[in-house]
Simulated assay, not measured.
Amino acid sequence: MTVEYQGVTKASRLDGISIPDGTSFILRVASSTTPINDLNVGQGVYAVLSMTAEVDGVHYEGDGTGVYLTLADSTAPFKQFHAFLLSGSNGTFAPAFTGSTADPWSAQSPTSTEFTNYLGSYGTEIYLRSPSSELVLGYAPEAGVSVTFSVVPEPSTLALAGLGVIGLAHGTIRRRYQTV
């Protein structure tokens, strides 16, 4: 699964040097498609595989080790959607919304969607560490933001589908030659 978050910076730093507030950024998070934990009804936790950020046109890559993606749906106690909650050794990042284009949204089996009605944020920064730099990405919770969420099949699912197509093609060709 991938999450793409577009926002503006607030109190961000690159290797200890401040990035001006209000700088546009895009954060992309790739995670597993199978939940590793079911915390509560309406929530699912997924392992983060990678994180990337584009800040004012400059690309940064971070390690997703120790970071988890938590999703919540409309059955969660607060009746709001965390477009995503990133938490772990790399900080906390948690924009919340009150709806999505895929209502009803399910945290256990999410579908591609765009979140709507920005509510605010419950976490303020995430760290993207790489061997050459450390980006501390803080964001302005009052800013109008956009979040899109895409569910892409895992490679094993794609391979299985491909084998099925090959099997169907083989069966069709075999039948065609047997009737001639």
Rank of each mutant, 00 (worst) to 15 (best):
Q80Y: 11
A161H: 12
M1A: 07
D73G: 04
V48C: 02
T34Q: 08
L86H: 01
G171T: 07
L86D: 02
T65K: 09
Y5K: 05
D21F: 03
L137N: 00
S100E: 11
G120P: 01
F115A: 07
Y68F: 10
W105L: 13
N40W: 15
I126V: 09
Q178W: 05
H59C: 14
Q108P: 11
I126D: 01
I17N: 05
T113P: 08
H59Y: 14
D15A: 04
T113Y: 15
T33R: 12
S130T: 08
Y127V: 13
G162W: 05
S31P: 08
K10A: 05
Y46G: 03
E61S: 12
L128S: 00
D56V: 02
L137S: 05
W105S: 13
I173L: 11
V8E: 08
Y127E: 07
A30R: 06
S12Q: 03
G42C: 12
Y177G: 01
I166T: 06
L135A: 04
S106E: 05
A94E: 03
S31E: 01
T98V: 09
N40P: 14
R174W: 04
T9G: 04
T113C: 15
Y139R: 01
A11Q: 11
E54R: 12
G22P: 04
S50M: 08
S132Q: 11
L137T: 00
V151M: 15
Q43L: 09
V152P: 10
L168R: 05
T179L: 02
Y5C: 02
K79F: 14
T52L: 05
A169W: 02
G57P: 01
Y68C: 04
T34C: 11
V41I: 15
G164S: 09
V48Y: 05
S130L: 06
L160F: 09
E54L: 12
E154K: 03
S89C: 07
T33I: 15
E54D: 15
F84H: 05
G62E: 04
F84E: 03
L49N: 13
S132K: 04
S106G: 10
P104Y: 08
R13W: 03
T111A: 15
S121E: 06
G7K: 00
V29W: 00
V29D: 00
G16Q: 04
V152F: 15
K10Y: 03
R28L: 13
T70A: 11
A94Q: 11
H82K: 10
A169L: 10
Y122N: 07
P141L: 04
A96C: 08
A76S: 13
E61Q: 09
V41K: 15
L14A: 06
T172K: 10
T98H: 04
P104T: 13
T23C: 07
L85A: 10
A76N: 10
T148Y: 07
